[in-house]
Write a protein that binds this DNA or RNA. Sequence first.
RNA 1: GGGGCUGUAGCUCAGCCGGAUAGAGCGACGGUUUCCUAAACCGUAGGUCGUGGGUUCGAGUCCCGCCAGCCCCGCCA
Length: 614
Amino acid sequence: MLRLAQALDAHLRAAMERAFPEAAAEASAAGRALDPQLAPASKPEFGDFQANGALPLAKPLGQPPRAIATAIVEQLAADPAFAELCEPPQIAGPGFINLTLRPERLAAEVQARLGDPRLGVPSVAVEAAAPSGAAGAALAPVIVDFSSPNIAKEMHVGHLRSTIIGDSLARLLEFRGHPVLRLNHVGDWGTQFGMLITHLKQVAPEALTTADAVDLGDLVAFYRQAKARFDEDEVFQVTSREEVVKLQGGDPVSRKAWQLLCDQSRREFQKIYDWLDIRLNERGESFYNPYLEGVVTDLDTSGLLVTDDGARCVFLEGVSGKDGKPLPVIVQKSDGGFNYATTDLAAIRYRFGAAPEGDGARRVIYVTDAGQANHFAGVFQVARRAGWIPEGGRLEHVPFGLVQGEDGKKLKTRAGDTVRLRDLLDEAVERAEADLRRRLAEEERSEDEAFIQHVATTVGLAAVKYADLSQNRITNYQFSFDRMLALQGNTAPYLLYAVVRIAGIARKGGDLGAEASGAGPEGLHFTEPQEWTLVRELLKLDAVIAEVEEELLPNRLCTYLFELSQVFNRFYDQVPVLKAEQSARSSRLALCRLTADTLRLGLGLLGIPTLERM
RNA sequence: GGGGCUGUAGCUCAGCCGGAUAGAGCGACGGUUUCCUAAACCGUAGGUCGUGGGUUCGAGUCCCGCCAGCCCCGCCA
């Protein structure tokens, strides 16, 4: 319905200009235009849209707002193009103009979507290729940096949100037609590696020369030991740092060991990604190693670099520490080594940089926890001051809160360990399976094992993903299997069930193909309020996607899909489809089909596949 | 000490660019099944939007102060 909203907005602006030419001239002289403040209606009884623009004009015009609204409405009434779109506007309350679209326009919108695989959502790729645009201008890529586990560690709950949210944002941007680079910035470099290799050399040297000599679980244990030694033992610290320098310098023995560790971890990560159906290009911290030096010299030539206490750093503007002195971003440690800030800066420079030594991106999105907000703010500032972000380039940190247990504290196992992602996913699927089996028994249904496994896996993983995505990501997230797997409420099973209901209609003889195309001689024809409510809900999809693309908040899409499911369930409950008379039946089937398509598309953008039966 | 985020119903959370009487879900209570999967639907109860000021036609939303919780703060990522 975005197109209709834009048309309405134009009509309203024109009407305001005709109604108040002096004020309009004055406004445009000041470099702005009279704003009708068009917004979706806050309640269904107000129609489809409301224009609030009359209220703020009351004071400058010295007229009561309702009189202003009346003048605007009179101009609208004189506009035949507007009258084709909209019913006569209503003035309500202190001076709101309520707008209701003509039913035939709504039906026409539905009709258009029935034949459109994109369901009315425009693609920027198509727009860019349009004759009006630069001919064949290749779109600059959007980079989504997400997941980013550490080599030699297992993925744990901490990676859950980044992985799920990042994947969803990437899917949505891809659907909008952007070339998307999904980058897995794995932790495969740095001090931690020095620690691990140093420790392994002493306690399990075979792990550094032979593939899979120790399994990942052991590696994690070794890592913990190494970390403990690093924190206590100064000699070990020094050796570790030397080891990092060797590795970063390309020492063949260190490189070989490093390669083995990375390969092993990579295979473990891939199992999880395959399970969750997440596609990701690994480009770890090590990738930027050749560019670290350049970062420092670049900062030096632009005069940002200061040597302080032996470390080379850039002092931040507007951020001061304990003593009121500006806080530094350290790019080269006093021992000559580089750290994560250097790597992050190199990554920014590379990502915005032109090919072949860069990605040529125009938007770079980091999906990491909110605890890194300060770090990114600092690094972004340095990148900006160094001039690495091109005109119009967007650099965005997409922060998210912690995953907490139901006690409100950090999620842990009973033993107090961090929860492994694979265990968590396993448990979700197991619980979904138990629920399913219980229900099958209660209903005396019998299904084969393949069905049960498929449904349980789909529902279990969908529940985990949806629970995370449906929450505003900025706040901490309370993880609860019981809540996410609940069969009612704003949960994955509820949404999946709506799709299943429609699939059921198709199975029971509803032709969702030809019969629901709305191409019949009588076209689409709606009579019941539940039908109109569903029509209006269906038409919101494009606006919701545009909003998520801008705000990077997948929960807005979840809210929409949940509300669509609710509206559909009401329709399904109160309006017969298959048993309807022929005149109503094909239009209702069309609504069913478009609802299913919309839910499948929307859930698909969340990384959630749907089911035919459950 | 400095900075960031959060504070909305018993619980978990929405709330778009400041707009009309602050919304869901769960839980509680009550109802609906000759009919497309009741994993559903309908209804009732439940609010000092942490708090005190300010801005304005209008503030949960913007600004300032305060309180509480979480997170970050020089060579880990």
